[in-house]
Simulated scan of single mutants.
Amino acid sequence: MATTPQLQAIEQQLACPQGEQGLDIADMMHATNINMTLNGWQCMRLAPNGRVLELGHGNAAHVTPLLKKRSDIHYTGLEISELMCEQAHLLNQEMVNHYRATFWHYDGQYIPSFIQAFDGILSVNTIYFWDQPQFLLLQLKQQLSALGRLALVYMDPEFLQTLPFVGHQFKPYAPNKLEALLTQTGFQNITTKSFHDEVTRKDQSVATRLFHVTTAQR
């Protein structure tokens, strides 16, 4: 898969959107990821006045609608794409101005140190691109509050492999593989829920997608 220069370029953009094509890719990712994001958000089971950290939020078009539904939540976003960090600020300016959302650029390896722990940590369709997953998970574990939940949302490997742009940059995870990795990193209360939805491909065909939300606590 991802055998042509065009498909390889799409794969690279999915890992880190850049330039004009990156803006188009970001819009596409929001449209295809939103159902996964909403399910991941629900699986965090945020308590009142919760603090959320999200890795790889893309253009973050989902953030303001979610925060308007939960007026007690504070959101922090981390992105490896400077372009997506800029877009997140633009699309969520009201929440930024009211100190309900902050967005930060990071290198994809080292999580910044935050003063307060997070009650929920969310990441949607990013784990495929993590170079050192256990190292990153250990850092996320340290950022969780005592009762906080990490929610990782990802496509099933069999579905992922049907996508034409999936190449060597993607590292698929089956639930049992991810659960084992979380256990090795010291997480507890690990559970996985599976969901089906329908996505429209570029050729306008509709495919049934299987995806998973794996949650864990420190």
Rank of each mutant, 00 (worst) to 15 (best):
S145Q: 07
E82D: 06
A88N: 12
A88F: 06
L38C: 13
K68D: 11
A88H: 08
A151E: 00
A146W: 08
Y128P: 00
L46G: 09
L150W: 00
I80R: 12
L55M: 14
A101Q: 09
H30E: 11
H57Q: 14
P112C: 02
A26L: 11
I34M: 06
D24C: 01
A101T: 04
Q143A: 05
Y106L: 00
N35T: 09
M155A: 09
A61V: 04
I115K: 15
P112Q: 04
L83D: 04
Y110C: 06
W104Q: 12
S113C: 08
I73M: 15
H89T: 04
P48Q: 09
A101R: 06
P112H: 03
R51Y: 11
A146G: 01
A88M: 13
L53G: 13
R45K: 14
L53T: 12
L53I: 10
M44A: 08
H62I: 09
N125E: 09
M155F: 01
G108A: 15
M28F: 06
R70H: 13
K68T: 08
P112G: 01
Q42V: 06
L55W: 11
P133S: 02
V96A: 00
L147G: 05
P65F: 00
I115P: 10
F114Y: 15
G120K: 04
N35F: 15
N35Y: 14
A151D: 01
L136H: 02
A61L: 15
A146L: 13
E82V: 04
L23M: 11
M29W: 11
G148D: 02
T64E: 05
Q109P: 05
Y99S: 14
D24Q: 09
P48F: 07
N97H: 02
G22E: 06
T76S: 15
W104L: 08
P112R: 01
A117G: 07
R70F: 10
M36P: 08
Y128G: 00
G22A: 07
T102I: 01
N92H: 01
G148M: 02
P112E: 01
H74C: 13
G58W: 10
G40M: 04
Q109S: 14
Q142E: 08
I25Y: 03
F118A: 06
H89G: 02
Y110H: 15
F135D: 02
K69T: 02
A31W: 08
E82T: 04
C85K: 09
W104G: 02
L67T: 01
N33P: 09
Q134V: 05
